[in-house]
Nucleic acid binder design. Structure first.
Length: 110
DNA sequence: AGTTTGACTGGAG
DNA sequence: CCTCCAGCCAAAC
């Protein structure tokens, strides 16, 4: 018995991308959420990696607060130093280890 | 058509 | 807290 969804059809890939972008657009100022949370809400729990790919390679993501998406441990995206600055400008607090303080800023989509 | 690559996650050491 | 590894899966080679 499959405990995960079938391979995505091209239509599902498109719908997933649109859902991801829509969810990211709803993240409140000064708060963050995770790739896994977004994947779950979009209906594809095992596709957290694809959330990251979507935000990185979808041009229209530039207009969204994609800097408010971090991994489950509050870690910022590899190779994107500016993300931390953008978050700090919103008052997001980072712990000594360089991770976002998720207990304060994690946002659970409504 | 087979292999490698990640803006991930969970678990081990 | 850190690094390393297995599982993950669409995309790019």
């Amino acid at each position: 018995m499959k405990d995960y969804p079938d391979k995505m059809t091209p239509e599902q890939v498109r719908a997933f991308r649109d859902d991801v972008l829509n969810i990211v657009g709803q993240i409140p100022y000064g708060r963050v959420t995770t790739y896994g949370t977004i994947a779950l809400l979009a209906g594809w729990p095992s596709h957290s990696r694809m959330v990251g790919r979507t935000l990185r390679y979808t041009p229209s993501a530039e207009h969204l607060p994609c800097h408010r998406v971090v991994n489950k441990e509050g870690r910022t995206a590899p190779g994107w130093g500016g993300q931390r600055l953008l978050l700090e400008e919103e008052g997001v607090h980072f712990k000594p280890n360089g991770h976002v303080d998720m207990s304060r800023h994690f946002w659970e989509p409504l």
